[in-house]
Design a protein around this nucleic acid. Structure first.
Lengths: 209, 209
DNA sequence: TAGATTGTTAATCGATTAACAATC
DNA sequence: TAGATTGTTAATCGATTAACAATC
């Protein structure tokens, strides 16, 4: 929990993966695991696993290993998954729908409070207990409902303007699927999912073999 | 085009991004750019840009810089985007639909030849000139139509079995959205898009600020 | 206690940055 | 030619791996 030196991005990127594997082990009823066994499962070296974890504290026990359930929770805490985030989905095309349903089904810590789209058709939509409306209502909704995260799934051309509105409304984090690199103030956290970069890297790997 | 030392993964991950920015510059009619100017735009150091590019050849001209159009093409060649890939989409829920339409609209080098789903409903679907059917026909279709890449958008539980079928049919690359780490032979290239890892990293960054 | 495995320091490796000679 | 900017070598920095003492 103490956070002295800044943790490198490489470490952060591995944490969700650790947690994912630990979640599976937990589901299977596995109670403890050594860094060596986890290493074989997950594909990082045992040394790296121990180094990574010890950035945040000593979660293991010498001669025994790590408690799966405990480590799963601890990593959840490190990632900030010990709370619920109110989120909005902006852009309700097929990708927006896919992400909304993914989040609703799989991400218990993230609650879809609102869904917005430029199109007026959106008003015919229902999604669980979410408020559904056009983008005109976005700013006010975010401000009044303690929304922390926005999922942006609008087309490329609309990405920046939607982001501006959200920043203006006080959003804290953006999960960006809009294929542009957004210009955002330093204080806003952003995670980009660039589909094309990912696909093009795949093309390279194929060529390489 | 010569490929002596293996190129690090970090470099590969940056290439599509270079190309993306160069594509925008090209569209704006910019003809040349120096590593310094590109650096300011893209956010890597000029030195890193030159190092990255010189892994593949000397594409610039001293005293002048790089030709935008030329460099764009060269990076496309490096990535393997100077050909067309026949692909199939497996799983035609909302995510599959979103990806199919994204690819069709934005990725000229990737042609959706087939779409498959477990559900029988799929047979009522039409998508451009793609062959549409249930997964029972997947293996034969891949074999007979020179399919190189599969986009897997089926739910977690089905990911591995679909992958096995595809491997069996001789697929070369997999773009995996199914939230599991697939077990694949060494020869298959894979690019994973783990939604949950990405979202959880975002949660961490927010906590960190 | 003996064996196992962590936490942590030290060594290695690789990637990024800086510097500069080559050259357009 | 002088100025600009590359290609490339050398220096630095950071991340990964190895080793081992601490300890359960």
């Amino acid at each position: 929990m103490k956070q002295t030196k800044p943790i490198s991005k490489a470490v952060i990127k591995r944490l969700p993966r650790y947690r994912r594997y630990l979640g599976e082990l937990k589901k299977k009823g596995v109670e403890k695991i050594s860094s060596k066994d986890l290493s074989e499962l997950i594909g990082y070296t045992a040394s790296q696993i121990r180094q990574d974890l010890n950035n945040f504290g000593g979660f293991g026990q010498q001669g025994y290993g790590y408690s799966v359930a405990n480590l799963y929770d601890e990593i959840g805490n490190i990632l900030g998954l010990n709370k619920t985030y109110e989120i909005v989905v902006v852009g309700f095309g097929r990708l927006g729908q896919a992400m909304a349903s993914y989040i609703d089904k799989n991400e218990k810590q993230f609650h879809i409070a609102g869904i917005f789209d430029v199109s007026n058709k959106i008003k015919d939509v229902e999604f669980k207990d979410a408020f559904v409306s056009t983008c005109e209502d976005l700013k006010e909704f975010v401000q009044k409902n303690n929304i922390e995260i926005a999922v942006i799934t609008v087309p490329r051309e609309k990405g920046q303007i939607v982001a501006d509105t959200l920043v203006d409304a006080g959003i804290k984090g953006i999960w960006n699927f809009s294929s542009v690199d957004l210009e955002l103030p330093e204080r806003i956290s952003v995670e980009n999912v660039h589909m094309s970069d990912s696909l093009h890297a795949l093309a390279y790997y194929m060529k390489d073999k």
